[in-house]
């Protein structure tokens, strides 16, 4: 069966003052119909750029190579008008809320109704009805009165819901959510995750959930892809990865999460930062921050390879990594190193 979304060997380069920046470097990802894929990584890992590329929303000066197939058709070579027409009824994106994500001078009702009317036709009144229905669905209280309000009149959490309503108003087959809960407090975060989970089971759509927070994905995602410095370093079913990460970076991410079952255990943040992506990196990009790094790691780049069914890692020492988190919390998995960025 062809996957709904099939990204093959995607590379994205930006020209900057410091030279060419490889934001995404040979990424391959698949999303099946109805699947929820979590894409995890720090900011700058290339996850958001990948998401924008799928939507065709990347600024003009990026050089994109590889393939992004949606239901068999390559989006990168598709006629731009046809591609734009997919947005809405086929592909939709939920952006991280900020004051500028919604048009500040148009009522939220009209912003949604405009999209509905463009894709589905019908009267203005019917489109407005649909907008109200969607806002109600995502849990905006007192919808009748609030369709005529402007974005700034809502709270951050409500605006995030409105963005979801906007993305879902034409019932897309694939929803891409880019850090939709990052700016929100924990309670609202949980509500939004719950909302997407519920809508997903009702509408049967596939979801790509981009986040830097591995914790959000538990109980939401079917599988996870971990990105680092523009590459996928580990991917597999969510439970497998939670139970036994096969890449030191994933392990580090997991160790930095607060765990309910291990109260009192020390939280460890991964020291250091992303390498300079304008400079060539001969070996593994994570090696300067990695406690498992050997000379081999700094000289040759490990490719993503399957270590068990459906589970792949881009680490030479994947097999040596212990199953599960190290028992001894005092044994650091990662060691501090000098900050790489200039």
């Amino acid at each position: 069966m062809t996957p709904l979304l099939d990204i093959t060997d995607l590379s994205i380069r930006f020209r900057t003052d410091d030279g060419e920046l490889r934001a995404v470097d040979g990424v391959s990802l698949q999303v099946a119909e109805g699947e929820v894929l979590g894409v995890v990584g720090e900011s700058g890992s290339g996850k958001s750029v990948t998401a924008l590329t799928v939507m065709g929303l990347l600024a003009g000066d990026a050089a994109v190579t590889g393939q992004v197939r949606y239901r068999g058709a390559d989006l990168l070579t598709m006629d731009p008008t046809k591609r734009r027409a997919l947005c809405g009824p086929e592909l939709a994106m939920v952006y991280q809320d900020s004051m500028a994500v919604l048009n500040p001078t148009m009522t939220v009702g009209r912003q949604i109704a405009m999209v509905v009317r463009h894709h589905r036709g019908g009267t203005k009144k019917a489109a407005m009805e649909r907008a109200a229905e969607m806002l109600d669905l995502v849990g905006i209280p007192d919808v009748r009165a609030r369709v005529a309000d402007y974005p700034h009149q809502f709270s951050g959490g409500q605006r995030q819901r409105i963005l979801i309503a906007l993305a879902l108003c034409c019932e897309p087959r694939l929803l891409i959510a880019d850090e939709p809960t990052t700016a929100l407090d924990v309670t609202v975060q949980a509500q939004i995750v719950e909302l997407v989970r519920k809508l997903r089971s009702e509408l049967g759509m596939a979801v790509v959930w981009v986040t830097h927070d591995l914790g959000v994905l538990a109980g939401l995602a079917d599988s996870v892809a971990v990105m680092y410095a523009g590459r996928v370093v580990e991917r597999g079913p969510v439970d497998t990865i939670y139970a036994g990460p096969r890449h030191p970076y994933t392990e580090g991410l997991l160790r930095s999460l607060p765990r309910l079952d291990a109260a009192g255990e020390r939280l460890t943040a991964i020291p250091g930062g992303l390498p300079d992506l304008t400079q060539p990196i001969p070996g593994c990009a994570f090696s300067p921050r990695c406690g498992w790094s050997t000379e081999h790691c700094t000289e040759e780049r490990p490719d993503l390879h399957e270590i068990e069914t459906l589970h792949a890692s881009a680490c030479f020492r994947a097999a040596e990594l212990p199953a599960g988190l190290p028992a001894d919390p005092d044994e650091p998995a990662v060691r501090p190193v000098e900050v790489m960025h200039r």
Partner: peptide, 29 residues
């Protein structure tokens, strides 16, 4: 360059609509 125009594009609205209906009223202020 504002994010809300990206949102409008991502909703599948044609460029003309994006520029004239979402962009122009804001630029006009």
């Amino acid at each position: 360059g504002q994010d809300y125009l990206r949102t409008a594009r991502g909703s599948g609205l044609p460029e003309r609509t994006v520029v004239l209906r979402h962009g122009l009223p804001n630029a006009a202020i």
